[in-house]
Simulated scan of single mutants.
Amino acid sequence: MTKQGTEFRNLQLVIVRARMAFRRYIQRTLKEHGFGITFEMLQVISCLWRDQGIAQQTLAERIVKDKASLSNLLNNLERKGYISRKEDAADRRNKLVYLTPEGEALWQRLLPIFDEVYTRAEEAMGLARIRNLTAELEEMHNILENA
């Protein structure tokens, strides 16, 4: 007989371990190709490539970082010349974040490498398994959000 909640605890541990393995895999790829950025920096660049000029708070929510961590990341990316922050004309307390031309050029160099990384991962896991896991995790998210 198992203690109540044990299976859910195990599931949570497996999810955390899978996320850590994914992060290490991406970090190794970045290092192997000499990009000089971290996994977290990649998250910011990727988010900004999809949606330029977003507020720092929105960016923090999308990449699941607190304000202090995001601020440090943005400072580092700004020093590297990959992003810029501009005052929001509608609300001067907010800063909007943009990729610079250098940041966009970096993203263009990253794209083919990560397309290959994701293609290899898809081939190794199989599309049916990925779709099933995605559906199950989305359902779990919805259940927990509405609990």
Rank of each mutant, 00 (worst) to 15 (best):
residue 85 R to T: 04
residue 108 Q to H: 09
residue 68 A to H: 11
residue 17 R to G: 08
residue 30 L to E: 08
residue 102 E to I: 02
residue 84 S to L: 13
residue 133 L to H: 15
residue 14 V to L: 13
residue 6 T to M: 05
residue 97 V to D: 04
residue 42 L to E: 05
residue 99 L to Y: 07
residue 16 V to H: 10
residue 21 A to H: 12
residue 122 E to R: 13
residue 127 L to I: 08
residue 42 L to N: 04
residue 11 L to R: 03
residue 98 Y to A: 05
residue 71 S to D: 10
residue 136 E to Q: 08
residue 138 E to Y: 15
residue 119 T to D: 12
residue 111 L to T: 12
residue 26 I to M: 10
residue 42 L to Y: 13
residue 8 F to A: 03
residue 3 K to W: 14
residue 25 Y to V: 01
residue 122 E to L: 08
residue 114 F to P: 01
residue 146 N to R: 14
residue 135 A to Q: 13
residue 34 G to R: 05
residue 16 V to K: 12
residue 85 R to K: 14
residue 104 E to P: 00
residue 59 L to C: 00
residue 20 M to F: 12
residue 98 Y to C: 04
residue 107 W to Y: 07
residue 23 R to G: 02
residue 56 Q to M: 07
residue 40 E to F: 09
residue 92 R to M: 09
residue 45 I to W: 06
residue 97 V to S: 06
residue 25 Y to E: 10
residue 56 Q to I: 02
residue 20 M to Q: 15
residue 47 C to T: 13
residue 55 A to G: 04
residue 125 M to V: 09
residue 83 I to E: 02
residue 43 Q to P: 00
residue 117 V to A: 03
residue 87 E to H: 06
residue 131 R to G: 01
residue 65 K to A: 06
residue 142 N to E: 14
residue 131 R to Q: 15
residue 120 R to N: 13
residue 28 R to D: 07
residue 64 V to K: 09
residue 109 R to Q: 13
residue 54 I to E: 07
residue 92 R to G: 01
residue 54 I to K: 05
residue 15 I to W: 05
residue 93 R to G: 01
residue 37 I to G: 00
residue 129 R to A: 15
residue 105 A to S: 10
residue 71 S to G: 07
residue 20 M to N: 14
residue 40 E to D: 15
residue 29 T to K: 13
residue 128 A to R: 13
residue 72 N to C: 01
residue 50 R to A: 10
residue 110 L to N: 07
residue 116 E to T: 14
residue 80 K to L: 14
residue 26 I to S: 05
residue 131 R to W: 06
residue 97 V to T: 10
residue 136 E to K: 03
residue 103 G to S: 07
residue 11 L to A: 09
residue 61 E to M: 03
residue 115 D to N: 06
residue 124 A to P: 02
residue 9 R to G: 08
residue 102 E to M: 07
residue 134 T to N: 09
residue 39 F to A: 00
residue 72 N to G: 00
residue 47 C to L: 08
residue 34 G to E: 12
residue 40 E to M: 02
residue 39 F to R: 01
residue 9 R to V: 09
residue 133 L to R: 11
residue 9 R to S: 10
residue 102 E to R: 10
residue 10 N to A: 07
residue 78 E to M: 07
residue 101 P to L: 04
residue 118 Y to K: 02
residue 5 G to Q: 07
residue 118 Y to D: 04
residue 9 R to E: 13
residue 145 E to C: 03
residue 5 G to R: 04
residue 82 Y to Q: 02
residue 123 E to G: 00
residue 90 A to F: 13
residue 87 E to Y: 06
residue 78 E to K: 07
residue 78 E to G: 00
residue 17 R to C: 01
residue 41 M to I: 00
residue 81 G to T: 04
residue 136 E to A: 14
residue 49 W to R: 14
residue 35 F to R: 01
residue 58 T to S: 11
residue 84 S to C: 10
residue 36 G to D: 12
residue 117 V to M: 07
residue 96 L to W: 11
residue 57 Q to T: 05
residue 50 R to F: 12
residue 5 G to F: 10
residue 92 R to L: 06
residue 62 R to H: 02
residue 105 A to C: 00
residue 30 L to Y: 08
residue 100 T to N: 04
residue 42 L to W: 11
residue 83 I to Y: 03
